[in-house]
């Protein structure tokens, strides 16, 4: 066994053709991807204040979720937060930004404007009715604008989605988009508690489970 497989909770997996593939590393990769999302500093209107600025500041502190490294260049970012209205003139630019981001890339549509056009849906001759008409969206966060807590709920939803989702075996396969609306009757304290639980849970990657999963998978492969 080489250095990589000694250090990582993976198993070597024989593949017809002679090359090898690391499988249980999936979990580790997804865990690290989900916890170090680098957002693109992209804000068109009101939501940018709440979603990009207030979350990044001291009270709400985006750094708790590992997503504070905002990058002005799309080539260095992997999370595109569409914060604000997209109009026809901006649409091709948004598409370009998305295309310039390296895979894997994730998109969150925050606020009603990015979801469906919001208050500018009717009688507007320029407003694009939903950013998903231009680029695929992974998580929708409703609100006009969403509170920072609501944005965090969406971010955690995205992290969960990344962890459960894509594997290097099936690149590009994603779960269906999620509407990260806060459940009804939920109070601010509930959100804070849930966030704390998630944070404390996410702080440790479950190595034992990862190894077990890898072992199970390789035993399945033996039959193959």
């Amino acid at each position: 066994m080489g250095v990589i497989t000694d250090k990582l909770p993976g198993v070597l997996e024989p593949v017809p053709g002679g090359s090898v593939l690391l499988t249980a590393v999936d979990q580790l990769i997804n865990w690290s991807r989900s916890n170090s999302l680098w957002p693109l500093t992209f804000g068109t209107s009101c939501c940018a204040i709440e979603v990009m600025m207030a979350t990044g500041a001291a009270r709400h502190d985006l750094a708790r979720f590992g997503a504070e490294v905002a990058r002005p260049s799309p080539r260095q970012a992997d999370l595109l937060v569409i914060a604000g209205t997209i109009v026809k003139r901006m649409a091709p630019r948004l598409r370009t930004l998305y295309e310039q981001m390296a895979e894997p890339r994730y998109v969150m549509a925050t606020g009603s404007c990015a979801i469906c056009g919001g208050p500018f849906m009717y009688h507007s001759y320029t407003t694009v009715r939903g950013a998903d008409e231009i680029i695929p969206v992974d998580v929708y966060v409703p609100g006009c604008p969403p509170r920072p807590e609501a944005f965090f709920y969406g971010l955690l939803t995205l992290q969960k989605m990344i962890k459960e989702g894509e594997s290097i075996r099936h690149p590009g396969e994603r779960r269906r988009p999620v509407l990260a609306a806060l459940p009804e009757g939920m109070t601010l304290d509930d959100i804070r508690k849930e966030m704390q639980d998630l944070l404390s849970h996410d702080a440790n990657v479950n190595m034992a489970a990862a190894v077990a999963e890898g072992a199970r998978y390789s035993s399945e492969l033996k039959d193959f």
Binding site: V87, R89, F120, Y122, H123, S124, Y125, T126
Partner: peptide, 30 residues
């Protein structure tokens, strides 16, 4: 200009006065 031109003035012509108030919130949101 025009990368966030949403046509608020046109939309104002299609609603009543109360409905216009919430649109101007989103002009200078600060």
């Amino acid at each position: 200009l025009g990368y966030i031109h949403r046509g608020i003035e046109k939309m104002g012509e299609h609603g009543n006065y109360r409905q216009f108030v919430h649109l101007v919130d989103r002009m200078d949101y600060l």
